[in-house]
Design a protein around this nucleic acid. Structure first.
Length: 277
DNA sequence: CTTAACGCCTGAAGGC
DNA sequence: TGCCTTCAGGCGTTAA
């Protein structure tokens, strides 16, 4: 579910409530979330650790402890955090992990579909998941010329290339559709057919879109919530995602259509996203 | 190497 | 009401 702006919103929320807190207890209600290590190892690894930083890379969250151990996690489709100062009277559904802090506050990890992943890294240990991960869209090293170089190597439609986290990390189904609309590029256009100018426009569009979406605390279609349980507000600014049948808000000459690419819905305007097809 | 399909899970929504 | 199918903001694995 969450893409870069939603993950960024959650990271900010975590910073505001769990920074400098020390874990007193970890409860694991669903073992499948944990990579490689046993429940016992997971608990002992995190016991008594103090949170020093909360960072984001692409859609990953990294919790860095004062000991320099790190917890890497990914929310996948339905992962979310709920923070409470004290134990609530009502039980939440689908809680998979609970972090208790020594000040009595509690961080719940809720994940309906249990796709989320948690893994632990010792100080200095390389985060294996980052080896092949593409640059964050806001990375200063990412410029139009290196972006086009990557795009030239792929023959898949540009929509599918943007979803590949090895190329650029952080975009999901909503923001790929919205970014391509902004850049007036057809989602079916083969990645290697983009011009340098189009790649530059696309990169600009991605950055402007994500910046705005972060400002609006992300997009809530069904159930995205920030750590303080608020819905995002960017859904009001979506132009094409789930707008099939509606008149294009830009050209007003065609209806937004929905197609399938690799079993996933793509939404675009067939008139103003003709590009060079 | 690249690419497409499947599987992981649960629940909501729509057709019959 | 119930049963069945499809769909969902993601991605690792597998097979071609």
């Amino acid at each position: 579910m969450p893409e870069l702006p939603e993950v960024e919103t959650i990271v900010k929320g975590l910073r505001s409530c769990v920074l400098n807190k020390t874990i007193s207890k970890v409860t694991v209600l669903h073992v499948k979330l944990l990579a490689k290590r046993s429940v016992i190892a997971f608990k002992s690894f995190l016991g008594n650790e103090t949170i020093a930083q909360v960072k984001r890379r692409g859609k990953y969250i990294v919790i860095v402890f004062k000991s320099n151990k790190r917890l890497l996690l990914h929310l996948r489709m339905t992962g979310k955090f709920i923070y409470k100062q004290a134990a609530p009277s009502l039980k939440f559904n689908h809680i998979r992990l609970i972090f208790n802090f020594i000040d009595g506050s509690i961080l719940y990890y809720q994940d309906l579909r249990i796709f989320g992943t948690f893994s632990l890294f010792n100080p200095l240990e390389e985060i294996s998941e980052f080896k092949a991960l593409g640059p964050d869209p806001f990375s200063k090293t990412l410029n139009p010329s290196c972006f086009i170089a990557k795009l030239k190597k792929r023959t898949v439609p540009i929509k599918n290339a943007l979803l590949d986290q090895r190329l650029i990390s952080g975009l999901g189904n909503i923001y790929t559709c919205e970014a391509l609309f902004r850049a007036k590029i057809n989602p079916l256009l083969p990645s290697n057919k983009l011009s340098l100018a189009q790649a530059a426009t696309l990169l600009k569009s991605i950055r402007a879109l994500l910046t705005l979406a972060i400002k609006y605390n992300g997009t809530t279609i069904n159930d995205f919530r920030s750590v303080d349980d608020k819905a995002g507000r960017f859904q009001k600014l979506l132009k094409v995602y789930q707008k099939q049948g509606q008149t294009c808000p830009r050209c007003k000459k065609a209806e937004i259509i929905r197609i399938k690419q690799n079993q996933r819905s793509t939404f675009y305007c067939p008139f103003c996203q003709k590009s060079n097809l």
